[in-house]
Write a protein that binds this DNA or RNA. Structure first.
Lengths: 261, 261
DNA sequence: TTTCGGCAATTACTCGGACTTAAACTTTGC
DNA sequence: GCAAAGTTTAAGTCCGAGTAATTGCCGAAA
């Protein structure tokens, strides 16, 4: 019967030794609405994506790490479960929690993408993402041209009008842009395609977002959007595909410009 | 809105043995190596994907549900964190844990795909998956043709030889098939593309897998594989794309046949 | 009547401690 | 030298108490 003969460490709450008048200062801060384990997962996720922990690295044990973060073991464990669910880490008894090889990561998971873009994203990875987008979006436009309903067209038309009113320089304009692309995706009636494209689109928009926001665009994107709309409305799949391709290329150019500075 | 507090779910997965005289019978069985929370997540995940819980439904509270499953709250919570990480559910204080709309699900997550194919997969979803595959794989082949290195070609060649030796009727043959496709993906040097295609490929192979295994194929697939290889080896992107397209179409036909029975 | 703001109840969230299980390491036996 | 058995360690599981936050009710003001 050894209850805790060897480990009667500093139970009770943190001594708050160095702290001053303010009460306990959690090592992990979270915005409102964000749960503690979510914040921890975010912290660890960004750290891993940033390369602070390399594949094969072993995280210090649950007790040690949760203590270092000043959170309970349960909260830390739940955070690790999230990372495990996304294929970033794997933990086994006696062996500890180790970072998995990059090939096991769910790189298309929205959260993982967000974590990747929280820091300086790997250029090669961004290039790959654009490549994927250039493959998927034109194909999506083609499908949309074949399957769109009247309501789809209406939503696109309205979004287009909103884009014209506000420009892409304003938040409202960018929202309308997203709405337009969402409408195109919805018109494909393909859930997998929708999810994929939405993730990539969001991630790609980070790249331009976190650089400076208002600047001269390479060229006015509205006409190109109209071309896409017209092709989809006409049910012309190949034309829609081509029009969307130029749109994607335009976005790529835009991002290239933004990342060059 | 249903709350399932009253519906002790039919425990699934094979019991492996008759549980009789043995004491306490956990409501959630897990195979070796599988953790308890993983098993719970699997159970809930498959249930949600199977439509037993509909979007908007609220799961009975932590205490009630964990009691019904005869597991601790911690284990149940960790499972829910996994589902949350995959976008299947969202839980907030006072509101409970509710199933999110399908549009929020990470349908391309390997686990989610596995859960989807654990039951009778939705035909429309499978169609969409094939559609996506038909978009991505030919494009991947084209990229591979442009970027392949000598080592890539060697791996493909070996896999091809293995496919010839064993046929697709044997497990070794199917493994070689997977190896070939993996090699094509690897040659694209695009991580996002690799992850995506691997997920879809695995999911698609479930469909043929869980139907009967050994049967006459629509036609011998080896020559088509050779065509893909030749095009990639020659660096001919469009030829590679076309060859791969016929390969995907072939697989689609195969699956259609398998699902018809 | 409608709307706003405060209140209470419910639910998830967090905590910390004990105990169990499983796998990596070590030792022992052949 | 190898294989089986034991040891150790860290993750896994469980419990129960206490905290925090949102929702939805309810009453007051417009």
């Amino acid at each position: 019967m050894k209850t805790f003969a060897d480990a009667p460490p500093p139970l009770m709450d943190a001594p708050t030794a160095a702290e001053d008048t303010t009460a306990a200062t959690p090592r992990v801060r979270r915005g409102t609405g964000r749960r503690l384990h979510g914040a921890i997962a975010h912290k660890l996720g960004t750290a891993i994506l940033a390369g602070e922990y390399l594949p094969g690295d072993i995280l210090s044990g649950e007790v040690a790490f949760s203590e270092a973060l000043d959170v309970s073991r349960s909260a830390y464990r739940e955070a690790v479960q999230v990372l495990t669910a996304k294929g970033l880490v794997e933990s086994r008894p006696k062996a500890g929690t180790r970072v998995l090889p990059r090939s096991r990561w769910n790189l298309l998971d929205p959260d993982v993408l967000a974590w990747a873009f929280a820091g300086e994203p790997d250029i090669a990875f961004v290039r790959g993402l654009f490549e994927l987008r250039a493959i998927v979006e034109p194909a999506a436009a083609a499908l949309a041209a074949e399957r769109r309903e009247r309501t789809d067209l209406k939503i696109m038309k309205d979004a287009l009008a909103a884009m014209r009113r506000h420009t892409l320089a304003t938040e409202a304009g960018r929202a309308a842009d997203r709405e337009f692309h969402d409408a195109v995706l919805t018109a494909t009636r393909n859930d997998a395609l929708i999810v994929l494209s939405a993730s990539i689109g969001a991630a790609v928009s980070w790249t331009t977002q976190f650089k400076q926001r208002a600047r001269a665009l390479p060229r006015n994107p509205i006409p190109d959007h109209v071309l896409v709309y017209d092709a989809i409305a006409a049910g012309d799949a190949t034309a829609a595909s081509n029009a969307m391709r130029t749109l994607v290329d335009l976005a790529l150019e835009d991002t290239k410009l933004a990342m060059r500075r």
